[in-house]
Design a protein around this nucleic acid. Structure first.
Length: 582
DNA sequence: TTAGGGTTAG
């Protein structure tokens, strides 16, 4: 016991360990202490992995617990590759220093090393380890399978993740959650929501993690009614107080256009941390409520919650949406105070603020002279987009020469398309044609715009020019009919009747979604603003949509709210709250 | 042992 009390620092432990090794004595108390110290240094957030590794290296008879714990610690560290290296030494039963034989991997080893593969997005290694698991006979282990799902999804292959999930004989809540989360992370939120529903039908009780994942899926698709159902579930189970679920709810409501509900959840959330505050600030900012967003930021600081990089992005985007250049500059400078280093996103917000205010000179100077880091394609594209909007042909020509956007990221179709548009705006049709040709040569497929809409709890997804939806024929027929009406008579109020008819007969027809046709927006007229927001959320041709909404709000004398990529637009009597900068 | 909240632009 005396010995146990003695060992309280790593140095003492090392010393004693060396002494004991030398004398050949083995004191069980000592090893118990060493094990405790090892676990502490490997697993506590303040732990020192070099110490833990040192202990492991010097053990005479290391058991798999030590190795597994070390692999686990490495997989959570900033350098997960070490986790794989150590795993390989276990796999090869490689002898470490002092002739110590390394234990082989067991069912605890695999989940940790798979996590490292996921973090490194190393599918190849993940697949090889999957092979080893098959050979080892551990493939029926639930934990191992759950980790495999997570690994494949984390590496961007939700198909393989689903294969593992499907082939599992016994699934638990973690299996379901990992798969749901994997779908969300791989931009398949509709499948995520469907799987969640299937999970409920199967009688598996979701936990907080599941709810958080499915709420993220709802936020991505605008699936408000499912989000609301989840919220009721949260209330029933009395989970709403938890900050993680609260944050997911705030984000979901804000992204579905229900800022009041977001505020309500925020007020109910106990122990608001930086995540919850950031979700609220960013939601307010995207709803054009910049003043309130800044008030929340001040309030957050007065509650002793320190902002992080993401909070600052939300704050800067509030400044951007309000057109506050001075404030934006003030806040990006203030980041130093919080020991935060501005990233390209933060600088991007500032450049965008200049661009939106039409201060293209300032924007360019800022990129060239004020930024301590190299600008990326997105930044140059923001400026180029500004040239197009503000008709600064000379600058765009100069930028095209100087910046060589295409070389910076030759796989990014957005640049080609924007450049093509700029050339077209300057009347340079030859160059525009060249862009198209270049895209073809490099075999770039134009990423189509896509949007999703929820009807009666089902989320439908559409891709521009896509005709795979089961009701596609009807939908496109109606779209064409409406488009014809518009073309013939300007705006035709009969359109709303057509829509009502569609609404009664076939629900699917609300899914008027995007093609880059104006007709897209018609579906909003007889639906609530929340639906309107959700439909146009991903619209590409915002300019068309914007002018169309002005027309509709005037004709129908009602308020319409839509959201483009940056903010919400409130149309009243044909005027938009954003000051109509289109 | 495994899963889990907030960011911009396009």
């Amino acid at each position: 016991m005396a010995l146990a009390m003695e060992i309280s620092t790593m140095a003492q432990a090392m010393q004693l360990h060396a002494r004991l090794l030398k004398s050949g004595q083995e004191d069980p108390t000592h090893f118990q202490n060493l094990s405790k110290l090892f676990t502490f240094s490997a697993l506590s957030p303040s732990g020192d992995l070099t110490h833990a590794r040192h202990i492991l290296t010097n053990l005479r008879t290391p058991n798999s617990y030590y190795y597994n714990t070390m692999i686990r610690a490495y997989s959570d560290s900033p350098d997960p590759a070490r986790s794989i290296t150590l795993f390989l030494s276990m796999h090869c039963r490689r002898e470490e220093q002092h002739g110590v034989v390394v234990p082989g991997p067991d069912k605890f080893t695999y989940p940790f090393v798979l996590k490292a593969c996921s973090k490194l997005r190393n599918t190849q290694m993940g697949k090889q380890i999957h092979g080893l698991i098959l050979k080892s006979g551990l493939i029926s282990d639930r934990y191992v399978n759950n980790a495999l799902i997570h690994m494949y999804a984390g590496c961007g292959d939700s198909g393989l993740a689903l294969k593992v999930f499907d082939e599992m004989s016994e699934r638990d809540v973690v299996s379901w959650t990992s798969m749901i989360d994997g779908f969300v992370d791989n931009n398949r939120p509709i499948e995520a929501i469907k799987l969640f529903e299937l999970m409920m039908e199967s009688g598996v009780d979701p936990n907080e993690a599941t709810l958080v994942s499915v709420l993220r899926g709802c936020a991505d698709t605008g699936a408000l009614s499912i989000g609301k159902k989840v919220h009721s579930f949260v209330k029933e189970k009395d989970l709403s107080m938890k900050a993680n679920v609260g944050t997911a709810l705030i984000d979901m409501y804000a992204k579905c256009g229900c800022i009041d509900d977001a505020r309500r959840v925020f007020d109910e959330t106990m122990d608001k941390d930086v995540y919850a505050w950031t979700a609220m600030i960013s939601g307010l900012a995207s709803h054009g409520l910049s003043e309130e967003a800044m008030e929340h930021f001040e309030l957050m600081k007065s509650c002793n919650v320190k902002p992080d990089e993401r909070t600052m992005t939300a704050v800067l985007s509030a400044c951007r949406n309000a057109g506050w250049i001075g404030k934006g500059l003030y806040h990006i400078r203030s980041m130093k105070k919080y020991k935060l280093r501005p990233t390209i996103q933060h600088y991007g917000c500032i450049v965008d603020t200049f661009v939106r205010a039409g201060q293209l000179d300032e924007a360019e100077q800022f990129i060239r002279k004020m930024m301590p880091i190299d600008p990326d394609v997105v930044l140059w594209r923001t400026l180029l987009w500004g040239c197009k909007v503000h008709g600064d042909v000379e600058r765009s020509k100069r930028l095209l020469k100087d910046v060589e956007l295409l070389k910076m990221d030759s796989r990014d179709c957005g640049s080609y398309i924007l450049l093509g548009n700029v050339y077209a705006a300057t009347g340079n049709w030859k160059e525009k044609a060249k862009m198209r040709e270049l895209m073809n040569q490099r075999e770039l497929v134009k990423t189509p715009g896509s949007s999703r809409i929820e009807i009666d709890g089902n989320v439908h997804e559409f891709t521009a020019g896509d005709s795979r939806h089961v009701e596609a024929e009807h939908i496109y027929a109606k779209l064409n009919e409406m488009e014809e009406n518009v073309r013939r008579e300007g705006y035709d109020p009969k359109v709303s009747e057509v829509l009502l008819e569609i609404d009664d007969d076939e629900k699917a027809s609300q899914l008027l979604h995007h093609s880059e046709k104006l007709a897209v927006s018609f579906g909003l007229i007889k639906t609530d603003p929340g639906t309107a927001i959700r439909i146009v959320k991903n619209l590409r041709s915002c300019e068309d949509c914007h002018s169309f909404m002005k027309l509709i709000s005037k004709l129908y004398q009602r308020e319409i709210i839509i959201r483009d990529r940056i903010r919400y637009h409130h149309f009243k009597d044909g005027e938009c709250s954003c000051g109509d900068r289109w």
